[in-house]
C-alpha cells in the first residue's frame, strides 16, 4: 500500500551541484559523479568554506572524490535551514581561492618484502621495476579522501600507464604503511587491515599515531610526493 501511494517525478539527469538529504541528520552536496581533480577541488573548497562559516548544530564533514557529506544535530538545526546554508555557500564558491594543501614527501621502499606485487604489476605493463618506480615517484598526488579504514588515503594523479585491477583475492592483512594501486588510484594504508590493492611498496613513516597531534599524518586536500628509499 505504501508503494502505491508513492509518487515520483520523472527521472532526470542530475544537474550539479546537487544537495540531497542522507537521512534526517546529514546532507550530501554532490559536484559530479567522476573521479577527477576539478571535482575534488570543489569539494574541498566547500569543506573549507563550511569550516569558516559553520551553521548552529553543525557536526562534521566527510569530503570524498565528488561530494561533501555534511552531518548535523537535528535537535539543534532544522534540515531546511542547513540546506539553505549549504546552498548559499555553494553559490558563493566561485570567488574562493582553492586550498593549496600541505605537501608531504613520503619515503617508500619499493618491491621485495615491502612491495610483494611490484614485479607482477611491472610485468603486466611490460615495464621494468625501475621504470615503474620512476612513473610512480614522478607525480605530485592529491589526497582526495580518507576512507575505507581509519587513515586510508586515496590519492589522485596516478600515471594511467600504471592503472592495474585489484587483486583477485584480497589479502587478510596488509601492513600499515603499505603503498598500493587499484584501478587508476594509488593509496596508503595507515593501519593493518585486510585489503585488495596491489602492494608495490611501503613507507616507514607512521601515518597514524594516536599520541601525536594531529594523529593522522594526511588529510584530504594534502599533496604527496613519493621518494624511493633503500
Amino acid at each position: 500500500m505504501n508503494g502505491a501511494r508513492r509518487s515520483r517525478g520523472a527521472r532526470r539527469i542530475h544537474r550539479y551541484p546537487r544537495i540531497a538529504p542522507v537521512g534526517e541528520a546529514a546532507f550530501t552536496v554532490e559536484f559530479g559523479d567522476r573521479i577527477d581533480e576539478d571535482l575534488v577541488q570543489r569539494v574541498l573548497s566547500l569543506d573549507a568554506a563550511l569550516a569558516d562559516d559553520p551553521f548552529p548544530g553543525f557536526s562534521e564533514t566527510v569530503p570524498t572524490y565528488r561530494s561533501l557529506l555534511v552531518l548535523f544535530e537535528p535537535e539543534r538545526a532544522s534540515p531546511e535551514r542547513v540546506e539553505r546554508h549549504l546552498m548559499h555557500l555553494v553559490r558563493s564558491l566561485g570567488a574562493r581561492p582553492l586550498p593549496e594543501g600541505r605537501l608531504h614527501e613520503i619515503p617508500v621502499c619499493y618491491g621485495d618484502a615491502c612491495g610483494p606485487d611490484l614485479e607482477s604489476v611491472a610485468r603486466v605493463h611490460s615495464l621494468t621495476v625501475g621504470e615503474l618506480i620512476q612513473l610512480h615517484t614522478a607525480p605530485t598526488y592529491r589526497v582526495a579522501m580518507l576512507g575505507f579504514a581509519p587513515g586510508f588515503a586515496y590519492l589522485l594523479g596516478l600515471d594511467e600507464r600504471l592503472a592495474t585491477p585489484r587483486l583477485a583475492t584480497p589479502r587478510t592483512r596488509v601492513p600499515a604503511g603499505s603503498v598500493g594501486i587499484a584501478g587508476v588510484q594509488t593509496g596508503l594504508y595507515a593501519l593493518n587491515t585486510p585489503g585488495g590493492w596491489q602492494i608495490i611498496g611501503q613507507t616507514t613513516l607512521t601515518l597514524f599515531d594516536p599520541e601525536r597531534e594531529p594523529p593522522f599524518t594526511l588529510q584530504a586536500g594534502d599533496r604527496v610526493r613519493f621518494v624511493a628509499s633503500h
Binding site: 542522507v22 537521512g23 541528520a25 546529514a26 550530501t28 554532490e30 559523479d33 567522476r34 573521479i35 566527510v62 570524498t64 572524490y65 565528488r66 561530494s67 561533501l68 557529506l69 552531518l71 579522501m145 576512507g147 586515496y154
Partner: peptide, 11 residues
C-alpha cells in the same frame, strides 16, 4: 557501483 561517497549509520 558508484564513485565512493560518504556513509552514515542507517545508510
Amino acid at each position: 557501483g558508484i564513485v565512493s561517497d560518504g556513509v552514515v549509520a542507517g545508510s
